[in-house]
């Protein structure tokens, strides 16, 4: 840190691409929408808790979709809820990402045979990372977040059409 500080003393410069710099900032501030439907919500809470500490990855909970970059679909999505999930996703500002957490959000999981459960949240909104488990452990959720960060870092944000 000392050497870095010294190099800026006499108008030093850093060589990097704008994309890299922007993506670095974006990847490390993926604020997630506080939205949990079922069992995975408790594991999401535990991940936000002291042991796993989701916030050290720059991921803070937001109650309002407008402020959120990331939607963690934690839990079963029923047919009644599906349209509301779409509304919430539409309310989020771009660029926006979705992690489908747990078997229920991935495919309906244990409740696939049920008459009232949506077979995977990807039928309503696009999903970036699928996270298996019923429910996934906090470590798994952290891994999914890192996976998403890697994806964000590779994006060409300025040249995005």
């Amino acid at each position: 840190m000392k050497t870095l500080h010294n190099s800026f003393e006499s108008d030093g410069f850093v060589l990097t691409s704008i994309d890299h710099l922007i993506n670095l900032a974006r990847a490390n501030s993926l604020w997630y929408l506080l939205f949990s439907t079922a069992c995975c919500g408790i594991e999401l809470m535990q991940t936000g808790g002291p042991r796993a500490d989701l916030e050290r990855f720059g991921s803070a909970p937001r109650a309002v979709p407008r402020q959120a970059d990331l939607m963690l679909v934690a839990g079963t999505i029923t047919l009644k809820m599906a349209s509301r999930v779409k509304v919430l996703y539409d309310q989020m500002a771009e660029p926006r990402y979705v992690i489908s957490m747990g078997s229920c959000a991935n495919s309906g999981g244990l409740f696939q045979a049920s008459y009232s459960v949506l077979h995977g949240v990807d039928r309503v909104i696009p999903v970036d990372v699928y996270l298996p488990g019923c429910p996934p452990r906090p470590e798994a959720l952290l891994s999914a977040l890192i996976e998403l960060q890697n994806k964000v870092k590779k994006e060409k944000y300025l040249r995005k059409k």
Binding site: T37, G75, T78, K80, F111, A113, S114, Y115, V117
Partner: peptide, 21 residues
């Protein structure tokens, strides 16, 4: 009813031990 998963109906199609999960 936003989380109605039809668990009671599912019980009719799984075995007795299979309903524990």
């Amino acid at each position: 009813g936003y989380l109605h998963r039809g668990i009671e109906k599912l019980a009719e199609s799984v075995s007795w031990q299979g309903f524990v999960p």
